[in-house]
Design a protein around this nucleic acid. Sequence first.
DNA 1: ATTCAAACAAACCGGTTGGTCTGTTTATGG
DNA 2: CCATAAACAGACCAACCGGTTTGTTTGAAT
Lengths: 202, 202
Amino acid sequence: MASRNPRQTRERLLQTAFREIHAHGFQGMRVDEVLRRSGLQKGAFYHHFGSKTELGYAVLEEQIRPLLESVWLAPLAEIEDPVEEFPHLLDNLGERIPPAMREHGCPLNNLAQEMASQDEGFRQRIAQLFEAWVEGFEAMFERAKTGGYVRNNIDSWAVARFMIAALEGCIGIFKVEQSPEQWRACRTQIAVYLATLRPRDC
Amino acid sequence: MASRNPRQTRERLLQTAFREIHAHGFQGMRVDEVLRRSGLQKGAFYHHFGSKTELGYAVLEEQIRPLLESVWLAPLAEIEDPVEEFPHLLDNLGERIPPAMREHGCPLNNLAQEMASQDEGFRQRIAQLFEAWVEGFEAMFERAKTGGYVRNNIDSWAVARFMIAALEGCIGIFKVEQSPEQWRACRTQIAVYLATLRPRDC
DNA sequence: ATTCAAACAAACCGGTTGGTCTGTTTATGG
DNA sequence: CCATAAACAGACCAACCGGTTTGTTTGAAT
């Protein structure tokens, strides 16, 4: 047995819990199953986390937040022309994420839909993450404004919100019908929408 | 006590279960709580339904399907010009639905996100309902084509799918942040997208 | 080396949960 | 009026599940 390593134990619990929550939802996740899969015991769990709910919060902050950062915020920050580049980001999204994401969708949105109206603690933390995501989009559009890639009079905040909504909606629909056609349709229409942001449309 | 009325008993169970599922998700819904709220007993429940899962299926078919019909399919069928009329439909959506919908979002999408990857029976039935919804949108756009309200070369199927995705996404985001501003933003951007379907844009 | 708190292991617990079983009442057709 | 099955009532149950408790081991400071 590996010698004691609190940080690693905690991380192991978080990672396993993240997978279980992603696969079965927070309510469907069982503490015992997380323990079984991580090869740890109750003692370890309740030493690191006060309750199942606190574990859920920690998963949001320490697992989902970094994922949001690497999968979305970082790539968004490198985009100059959203109208042309963002659809490409969607095209190779499949390669930038683990296969579990295709089956179970967006971990953040899953938790949002399940827990937002159940637990205020979840709702606030989820709102915070969405806010960060919105800011990522907003920054991209503002940059695109100064670059002349989009009109100057667009409401970056509203557009950002809608982009996230459309994205989550598409991912959600994809969960029900995992057809490439489905995804292509959404990707294409998002591109159509983005094109409306171009200056002097007519 | 009202005399026996099997059909009414079943309906009472279905309605109560629908509310509980809508409020807490299918996994979060408790059979005992449905019984308590409906004032019935275990015997009645397991006489009408084989299991909790079968109840879930019945709620989909007998509660959510009619709701989809009245809230969306019927209004969509009366739209001639989607570009102008659909945004109005979104504006008075709040008045056409019970207040519980604002708090807990779309019952169909909730079940979709929670159960699609958990239970194949759910997934199929949900896919069927989405399909009916898509057909409603498709029919609307095809009608609009012949009416000259939208271009003839648009992919009605893809547009329909995207409309539903965007809608569900907006509703989902709204669940996390119940601000009117949030909803207005989505409504406006959907209108922007719809405008791209107009003939001779330029 | 000793001490002491952190980091666990593992048995244990009480309430919950979906589901069953047995018995009783009600409607209905003959 | 009677027979029969449908339509329940309500006690019961085993498994589950989050959480607690108690005891033990480990590592690091003194």
